[in-house]
Design a binder for these strands. Structure first.
Lengths: 145, 145
DNA sequence: CCTTGTTAGTTACAAAATCAACTATTACCC
DNA sequence: GGGTAATAGTTGATTTTGTAACTAACAAGG
C-alpha cells in the first residue's frame, strides 16, 4: 500500500520510539512476568533499589518519571512478596526508606543478568560507535542528557 | 546518589527507550488530547487512514502492531465522532473498509502539521547524519527495518 | 452441501492506569 | 506558638487496557 499522503508516519519520532520501546520490552517482560509474576512497574522499582541501594518513593519517581501512585502500588506488591522492606525515615516521618530484602536482592541479581544479556543482544545489531551514539541520543530525548 | 551496583539502569535500552518514548510523546499528546479529546490509539488510527487512505482494521494492526481490540475501540470512538466511516467489504463481508470523513481529514491535517513541526523540533537536537542514523536504528529495534 | 478450521472484528470481565481527594507530617512566616 | 501552605505517600472512583471467549463470514475437503 502506497502513501496517499507525503507524511512519513513510520519515521515520526514519537511513533517510532513507541514502537521500538514496545518491541524491545517484550522479551524482557516475558522473563520477569513468567519467572516472578512481576509487572513493569515492579521490576522498575526493584531495579532502582538494586542499582542505587535504598531510596524513598519520591527519589524513585524523580529518577524514573513514574507517577507516585504507580510506585506506591508497585511498592505494596513488592512488600507483600517480601522483596523489600519499608522503614520510616527518622528525620522526615512522612517518607520511608525502601530497601531490598535478601530475597529481593536475589531476584534482582537474576533479572539483572537477563537484562545485561538482553541489552547486549539488542546492541549487537550496531557498531560500537552507533551504539554509544544511540544511547546518547535517547538520553537526550528522554530529558536525561 | 551513586550506584551501589555496576549495572547502568539509565543506559539499559528497554528502559531508555521507554523513557524517551514517553517524554517525546508528551507534548504531542497534549495537543490531540486538548484539542480533540483524543487518545493515543485514536490518533494512531486516524493517522494511518490519513497517510495511507482507506484500510481495514487488520491492515492497521499489521502496520502499527496495535492489538485488534485497541483498534476496534479506537475505530468505534472515531466513528461516533464522525471522523471516519465504515463500509463492509463486498468481497469479504467480515472486514470493513475504514475511511476518513471530511471532518476526519481536517482533524488529520491539523494534527499532521503539529506532528511535522514537533518532529523537526525533536530532530533539531542532532545533526542530519545523527538524525538519519537514529531513525534507522529505531526502525531496526522496532522490527520495522 | 456438511463438517472442520480459519479469519475479521466485537464484547465481557478482570487487571491496571489515571486523576483527584485524602491523611499525616513538615516548613514557612506573622 | 498558631495558622497556612507544601510535601510524602495512600486511597477511591472512573477510564482504559488485556485476555479470552464470542459471532459472523469464509475456505477447504470429503
Amino acid at each position: 500500500m502506497q502513501n496517499k499522503d507525503d507524511f512519513d508516519l513510520q519515521s515520526f519520532l514519537p511513533f517510532l520510539l513507541n514502537q521500538a520501546a514496545e518491541e524491545s520490552s517484550l522479551a524482557f517482560q516475558r522473563v520477569y512476568k513468567g519467572r516472578y509474576g512481576m509487572l513493569r512497574n515492579e521490576w522498575r522499582v526493584l531495579f532502582h533499589l538494586g542499582v542505587y541501594g535504598q531510596m524513598t518513593a519520591k527519589e524513585i519517581a524523580e529518577r524514573s518519571k513514574m507517577h507516585k501512585t504507580k510506585i506506591s502500588r508497585a511498592v505494596q506488591r513488592l512488600a507483600e512478596r517480601r522483596y523489600l522492606t519499608r522503614t520510616r525515615d527518622g528525620r522526615d516521618r512522612r517518607s520511608e526508606r525502601l530497601a531490598l530484602t535478601p530475597a529481593g536482592e536475589s531476584v534482582y541479581r537474576d533479572l539483572r543478568s537477563v537484562a545485561e544479556e538482553y541489552d547486549s543482544h539488542l546492541a549487537r545489531q550496531f557498531t560500537r560507535g552507533e551504539e554509544a551514539l544511540l544511547r546518547m541520543m535517547l538520553r537526550r530525548l528522554a530529558g536525561m542528557g
